[in-house]
Design a protein around this nucleic acid. Sequence first.
DNA 1: GTGGTCTAGACCACG
DNA 2: GTGGTCTAGACCACT
Lengths: 130, 130, 130, 130
Amino acid sequence: MFVEIDEKSEIPIYRQLKTSIISAILSGGLKEGDRLPSVRQLGSDLGINLHTVNKVYNILKDEGYINFLRNQGAYVNAIPKTCNNEDLMDFEKKLQPIIIEMRAKNIGREQFDEIMDLIWNHVLEGGKGL
Amino acid sequence: MFVEIDEKSEIPIYRQLKTSIISAILSGGLKEGDRLPSVRQLGSDLGINLHTVNKVYNILKDEGYINFLRNQGAYVNAIPKTCNNEDLMDFEKKLQPIIIEMRAKNIGREQFDEIMDLIWNHVLEGGKGL
Amino acid sequence: MFVEIDEKSEIPIYRQLKTSIISAILSGGLKEGDRLPSVRQLGSDLGINLHTVNKVYNILKDEGYINFLRNQGAYVNAIPKTCNNEDLMDFEKKLQPIIIEMRAKNIGREQFDEIMDLIWNHVLEGGKGL
Amino acid sequence: MFVEIDEKSEIPIYRQLKTSIISAILSGGLKEGDRLPSVRQLGSDLGINLHTVNKVYNILKDEGYINFLRNQGAYVNAIPKTCNNEDLMDFEKKLQPIIIEMRAKNIGREQFDEIMDLIWNHVLEGGKGL
DNA sequence: GTGGTCTAGACCACG
DNA sequence: GTGGTCTAGACCACT
């Protein structure tokens, strides 16, 4: 299975799942045209409700990552996404408070860069083992 | 005033305020020994509930950023914070989903580094833009 | 072939097919007395389930567009249809939400009329583009 | 109340509600800055589930019609919407099958224009009586 | 079998 | 009090 859910996390399940699937697509674990498990299947595999899975699938569809083929389930789209300025502003807003806290904990520039490098590269390893 | 609240943001007010104050401390806008406004004062200045301000002050005290001096208000502490492994893990968990979405929007490594550089440096310029 | 099916469309296949055939009849691509392909034939041509084709044929028969001749297949009827008030109400109900959304996107009266003109005329050009 | 739900309609409740609210905004029954009823309130007023209302509010937020002020409910946005080509294509696709059926029922060009005129003008009267 | 919709009840974060 | 999230069970349209 290409995703695990941490029930104890403060991050909502549906966000964890969304991130996991996007990560799997990015890493190649899920390729264009691949079929996603049905909402019922994935829900039961992960031990979560099918409505939660359904919500995620719909968000992914709205954001263009997947689409639905009538009664045949959800399929991975090509990813021709581009990043506009609004997106950039959004990312900055989300990153800023975290980085502020990192500086507050005396993380220096070198350590900061190391961490970023680590995560940047780890992202591609999230989708393996599909 | 060293902080502005964005009512429309999805980020809770108390978190925005907390980040702003930490940022002000980091940037030198608030130095060790400086007195913070009273919860009543700051609440009315920002147009937010004084309970929200109070909550933030208590969090900041718990995290060691400020101190309460016998009914005289809150004062800024020295900042000898260090970062343990648990903190690091925490930061990584928070950063990962954002960076995954950035990669999904075709942000390359160079652009990523630029953005990080930008934010890193902005943090030192006080609580503005937050 | 006078019809193409868009698998990704949110419009059910059977509706797409129904509309296509009606459109073909209207445009003269299918004339009175013409024989429709067998459900098996059309289903395989379009890559859809023969039950879906069958369903459409039955709907078209119920609505008077075609007839079944004793195990020899389906034939196009004359089209003496008239529009009663119930039909009119029905059309209005279907059109209203779409037009509301068009107005919400700042489409003006002139542009609206242009679009309607375009579609009105396109309808006569057969089932293409559907 | 600015909206009524037809339980018997084949159109999903959430779509009816969405259209009603957009219509009310267009007609001026709901102006920029106006507060929408809480999901609980509107749900109980309309005799529908609060989750259904919630779904609609979230769609409207995604489409930019409203936004949420934390714990104070939903407010109507300014409507600077513009219509891109994708939207236009979408409208055409939705309108086409309906217009085909209208032609199939022998509705002539004059009657067609009358109907469109009627609906176009009716749209603005949907939101009164708020 | 697929997803779509609706209902319902519960708990939570926030202010 | 507000919306956010999760669970659960039901019925439906479609193929």
